[in-house]
């Protein structure tokens, strides 16, 4: 579904390329997590998939990005957005400013595409319910908290029903409840067959839903594989990425001989529980 063919990119003002010779493919329906330290190029990667690069941000590119069989650089943005939705890291920038209520804000893209009114109402109501933000429907998008704005920005992309969804830290300003709502929505979209690229710092959550995780570092893919392997990699810490708390706990336990040497470090709660159960021989305190 997504293919990067030796893709490189440098910002017009950047001294070093932000993305270097990326070569990877994301098959249709995959949920691909992206992690990496600050400045690794995660947002740049997201912008490149959605066509913001090269269509709007200048700079130099080499190689190609192909999404849904179309070369991004050769496809006009308005055509591309029917297939690829991008939720920006900063929700403030995604809010149109044209609309005075959240409900209308959500419908903005659909209005521009000329979607019939009844269909719009249906889709907007569905997204309001899915993200559990019905209570915000008549509020002004500018009178919301950062987290609420993130939900609205996500909603404004979801109503477009893209087949590829790129999310750049969609829960960075949300509390655990709000994050949970976003992850529930992402899980549902994944089940519905949407191809998803999710940049996310909350590795515990990512480990539970991702099919695959990429680690970006200095604009390059440093690691690529299933979450259980990638997120437990000991090098993550050296690169400035804090692993999951389950991995950290098990690593500590291993130093004290409380984790089987032959057992991989866990990245999910379930794996951690199973591991500790194995060490304690299934004895549980009551």
């Amino acid at each position: 579904m997504i293919e990067l063919d030796d893709f490189s990119y440098a910002y017009p003002t950047g001294s070093r390329p932000a993305l270097r010779s990326l070569r990877l493919a994301v098959p249709a329906g995959q949920l691909c997590g992206v992690v990496g330290p600050s400045g690794a190029g995660k947002s740049t990667f997201a912008h490149a998939l959605a066509g913001f690069i090269p269509h709007a941000l200048g700079g130099e590119t080499a190689g190609r990005v192909v999404v849904g069989g179309r070369t991004v650089a050769d496809t006009p943005l308005p055509d591309l957005v029917r297939d690829v939705g991008l939720v920006l890291q900063n929700p403030f920038n995604q809010i149109s400013g044209v609309k005075f209520t959240v409900r209308e804000e959500l419908a903005f893209g659909l209005e521009n595409l000329g979607v019939p009114q009844e269909e719009m109402v249906r889709r907007v109501d569905a997204v309001l319910a899915e993200l559990r933000i019905e209570g915000l429907a008549d509020r002004s998008p500018y009178q919301l908290s950062g987290g609420q704005q993130q939900l609205v920005a996500l909603g404004s992309v979801l109503v477009m029903r893209p087949s590829v969804l790129v999310l750049d830290e969609p829960t960075s300003q949300l509390d655990p409840v709000g994050s949970g709502q976003v992850f529930d929505a992402v899980r549902a979209l994944h089940r519905a067959g949407v191809t998803i690229v999710l940049v996310e710092h909350k590795l515990e959550r990512l480990a539970e839903i991702a099919d695959r995780v990429l680690v970006l570092r200095h604009g390059e893919v440093a690691l690529d594989g299933p979450p259980a392997t990638v997120l437990a990699d000991p090098r993550l810490a050296d690169w400035g990425v804090a692993g999951t708390r389950y991995t950290a706990a098990a690593r500590l336990a291993r130093e004290r001989g409380l984790w089987p040497e032959d057992r991989d470090l866990p990245v999910t709660l379930d794996a951690a529980v199973a591991g500790f159960r194995a060490v304690t021989g299934g004895v549980e305190s009551r």
Binding site: F52, L77, V81, L86, L88, N93, S96, N112, L113
Partner: peptide
């Protein structure tokens, strides 16, 4: 760009 991504230029 975000505006364009929402087909503002359509």
């Amino acid at each position: 760009v975000a505006m364009e991504a929402r087909a503002f230029g359509a």
